[in-house]
């Protein structure tokens, strides 16, 4: 598989994207040891985490429309960056938990929050995160992600997985097989219901005036 094929498969989503992801992971897995363990002196587990972050970021970038001449070089660069992030995080770990629900945003890598901010300017998260003050932008970013995670937590895991698969590019035929629905129509109905329950969860959080949801709720309820 060459670069163009892999990029095309990732953009296609669904099963081809899974295959491309596995291919890249198998092909460049040696970087876990080469960069993570030998160069940066990370543990094998941390190195694996840095490598997984790199693959996720690459996948994300490709899905957002970026193109790369050499995927191998990019995986190498991203793995190195994520490894360095890990070292930095270790060195500056404050131990404070800014939100009530640890395990949501505090566990998220920095790059993850960055990529969410670097959506195209029209994207909801880009619009939400617009702020002149860097500190406020960072706080807002954490709050919004925490709020989103709270809403997701209220959904059953299976329904969440269904919605994720739909967004990942699986068509209704594949969703029917993957989740064991009787017909594609049922799959369609379940996706609609899932989205509806997620919207309800967000509305409920706003109604309950959940502190971490204040930015998102303000944006949702604005007049213009």
């Amino acid at each position: 598989m060459d670069n163009d094929q892999l990029i095309q498969m990732i953009r296609q989503g669904g099963t081809p994207r899974e295959r491309a992801g596995r291919y890249l992971q198998d092909k460049y897995f040696y970087l876990v040891r080469q960069i993570g363990v030998r160069q940066l002196r990370l543990s094998y587990d941390d190195a694996n985490m840095a490598f997984s972050d790199a693959l996720t970021e690459l996948d994300w970038k490709i899905r957002q429309g970026e193109s790369f001449d050499d995927l191998g070089k990019m995986v190498y660069t991203l793995t190195h960056r994520r490894g360095v992030d890990t070292i930095r995080k270790r060195a500056t770990k404050s131990g404070t938990e800014p939100f009530g629900k640890p395990g949501n945003t505090t566990d998220l890598p920095d790059w993850f929050l960055d990529v969410l901010q670097n959506f195209d300017t029209d994207h909801i998260l880009s619009r939400l995160l617009q702020h002149d003050d860097e500190n406020e932008r960072s706080q807002r970013r954490h709050r919004i992600i925490a709020c989103v995670c709270l809403a997701l937590d209220e959904m059953p895991k299976k329904r969440r997985a269904l919605l994720v698969n739909k967004l990942d590019g699986y068509d209704y035929e594949e969703l029917t097989q993957l989740h064991g629905f009787k017909t594609e129509r049922v799959a369609h109905e379940m996706v609609s219901r899932g989205m509806e329950s997620l919207r309800d969860a967000l509305k409920n959080l706003c109604r309950q005036q959940e502190p971490v949801c204040r930015d998102l709720c303000a944006w949702l309820s604005r007049k213009s």
Partner: peptide, 30 residues
Amino acid sequence: RLHEAARAAIQVQALLDRNDAFYQRGRQKL
């Protein structure tokens, strides 16, 4: 806006799931 927010939430979840899938598979390979 509510639809957009819900979609963004799923995108966040998708990213987390994808990252976890890579990590778990990496552990097996390790």
